[in-house]
Amino acid sequence: MRKMFSVIYYEYKMQMKRLATWGILLAATILSFLDNLPTARNLNRLEFLNEPAYFIYRVISLDSLVLLFGLMFLLAERFPLDSKTGMKSLFMTLAMQKWQYMLGKLLGGLLYTFSVLCIFLALCTTIYFAAAPFAISLPECIIPFVKAIFVSVLPVSLFVSFCSIALPGIMDIRLFYILAAVFWGANAAYVDSADANPFYLITSGDLVHLIWIHPEWSYLDKGSVLANGIFLMGSGLLFIGLLFLKPQFWRSE
């Protein structure tokens, strides 16, 4: 177990120290502010922007997709890079088991994605709270923020990190990039409606409606919420399973 924790720690450290991580975070934050900062123009454009829950819902469902797309690229190379640099060969000569190496990489990536997404959400929420030209209380921001962490940030981080790290270990990374770009594009193009959202949406599925829901579409399909949650958590775990089962990934024990 200690070896797995070492892999987690160093994976997390390496990813968090990358300039690209902070560049992507900055870009996503700027885009979010352009879209959601409670300026007069935005308040005129977005009917519910004076509600903190709506703001957090919007940041998570739309703007975080940009952030996650960028993080996906940074996560996808973790296994292929180890193979290319000779590090994987080196790891195989150590008294370390396959599951320690794999889980260490995956959980390190999960911790990284979760941290960056939390920082992004916290940054946006803090500036919204500070910049709002109307009165809002701290609990009005904190409650939807905490909800967002549990109903969206956690499952989304699991999905994005596990898929981005595991799939390039199974398939050619270029194929993964193409599939991911198509999938992300489909997510970005989807327009919210009163109907139950498709389960395969990453950040704008019905899970995110637990943070805020349109007052005119107040019915929330519980089945759709569950399906979205199962898709996000289940896909990630499925791809880990496939990776574990892949022959020739590790030395023969």
Binding site: Y10, K17, K84, T85, G86, S89, L90, T93, L94
Partner: peptide, 16 residues
């Protein structure tokens, strides 16, 4: 494995 140390021919290590 607890008794060997290995330096491979190509080892790029982690640059960061």
């Amino acid at each position: 494995r607890t008794r060997i140390g290995y330096l491979p021919q190509e080892l790029a290590m982690y640059p960061s």
